[in-house]
Amino acid sequence: MNEYLSPIARNLPPSGIRKFFDLVSTMKNVISLGVGEPDFVTPWTVRESGIFSLEQGKTMYTSNSGLIELREELSYTMSHNLGVEYDPNHEILITVGASEAVDLAMRALLGPGDAVLIPDPAYVSYAPCATLAGAEINYVPTHAEDGFRLRVKDLEKAYTPNSKLLVLSFPNNPTGAIMTREDYLPIAQFVTEHDLIVLSDEIYSDLTYEGTHTAFASLPEMKNRTMHISGFSKSYAMTGWRIGYAAGHPDLIQAMTRIHQYTMLCAPITAQFAALEALRSAGSAKAEMVATYDRRRRLMVHGFRKMGLTCFEPLGAFYVFPNITSTGLNSEDFAEQLLQEEKVAVVPGTAFGPSGEGHIRCSYAYSTEQLQEALKRMERFVQKRL
């Protein structure tokens, strides 16, 4: 059957995260710091809203674009929190997670001959989605000495005449880096000068621990060039609900909706009602989760530095990205040997792009007790190699 597969599907590599954790599922007593999923349950008011919608018999399709009530609430929230106005009728699309929004945006924008600029390291789905759309990938390295922020000097080196789309993902998975308004301004100038479109995945925007998150679309002249993508999975512990959204120029939203209506048709109605309730009532629950992540973040950075590893301090998301080159191991070998010897699962940095070599990604969306035990085991492992 393999010979019948399309070349793109046949050659598409498995996720560097899922591939590694297939091995974890066969082992016992493993502490896993690999999957980027909150260890909290969805706030009760949100769960109750979903249950109540079912009790009311709301089990039908919604508009392809999603519930108008949810789009209106999102419009208000983005205006209030991000300083960007979006028309709920024409500029917002509700999707099956932020991941679908990324896929839709790339398929609506890209084709053979186009190229995508992807800051590296980056979330594992961007490059495969670009490949599935027929585009080429140009990685743009980011560096620990720059706080893993995107710099114009690196964009200039990666840019080609075929470059059409720039992906931004801050706060960043896997590094935890953020971009301030001042950091973004030269990027915005570069975007204008080179006539680029921007896909800004801001799924971790609420998990910013220093300063205030800046939406790229809020910069001067950037709204119409930017597809703003986010969702409810990380901020509200709603990963399994699969609910996200895209906001941008009406022409692009319309094109994405056309693809969406032939593939997903609409996001699940129960999840949409739950998301609406999250925006209306779960702010305090979200704040408590963020405060907990912040405490765990400090614990992890201190733990890695204490064991002798260089560790960039993440200022967003819920990942830490320590440098493990001092052990003499590459990222893949470090992760495999750590798992076998100490039963701790982490993700090799190379799962997130070429610049991830020499690092591992550890999620701190786990209990303090698990994190402390994992650090204890990792310190024992590292000390044997320093």
Rank of each mutant, 00 (worst) to 15 (best):
S355F: 00
I197P: 09
F216C: 08
G283P: 01
H80M: 11
D114L: 02
A351F: 00
A365S: 11
I17S: 05
R280S: 03
V290P: 10
L117A: 10
F190R: 15
S235M: 02
A274W: 02
E145V: 09
F148E: 02
L5F: 12
T214K: 08
L5Q: 14
T325C: 05
V320A: 13
S355K: 15
R225Y: 01
Y123E: 13
R10K: 11
M300Q: 03
Y262H: 13
G244S: 09
L5R: 14
E37I: 11
Q340H: 12
H194L: 01
V167R: 00
P38W: 13
E136I: 02
I68M: 12
T239R: 07
F216M: 05
E69D: 10
A177D: 03
R361E: 00
G66C: 09
M1V: 14
R361S: 10
E73S: 14
D195N: 14
D22L: 13
R10L: 13
H260W: 01
G16V: 07
V84C: 05
G358P: 06
S331E: 05
F381R: 12
E221I: 04
T239S: 15
E369D: 15
H194W: 04
G349V: 04
D22W: 10
P174G: 09
L165E: 06
P128Y: 11
Y76R: 15
A115V: 06
Y86P: 05
E37T: 14
S367F: 03
G211R: 11
P186I: 09
F352A: 07
G328T: 03
H260Q: 15
I253V: 14
S326W: 00
L338W: 12
V320T: 11
S281C: 10
E332F: 11
G240S: 08
P348W: 06
L117F: 10
T131R: 15
P174N: 12
S32A: 14
E145F: 06
N173S: 08
L315Y: 05
E85Q: 08
M289G: 10
V347F: 03
K223M: 03
D103F: 06
Q254I: 00
T270D: 07
T257A: 12
A335E: 01
V102M: 12
R225E: 02
T350F: 02
E313L: 04
I51Q: 07
Y126I: 12
A255L: 06
T59R: 15
C266I: 00
P7D: 09
L196H: 08
T239P: 00
A135E: 08
P174Q: 12
H90I: 04
V346K: 00
Y159E: 02
S25P: 01
M222W: 08
Q56I: 00
P322E: 03
A177E: 02
G244F: 06
A130C: 05
G248Y: 12
L315S: 01
E145C: 01
Y293P: 03
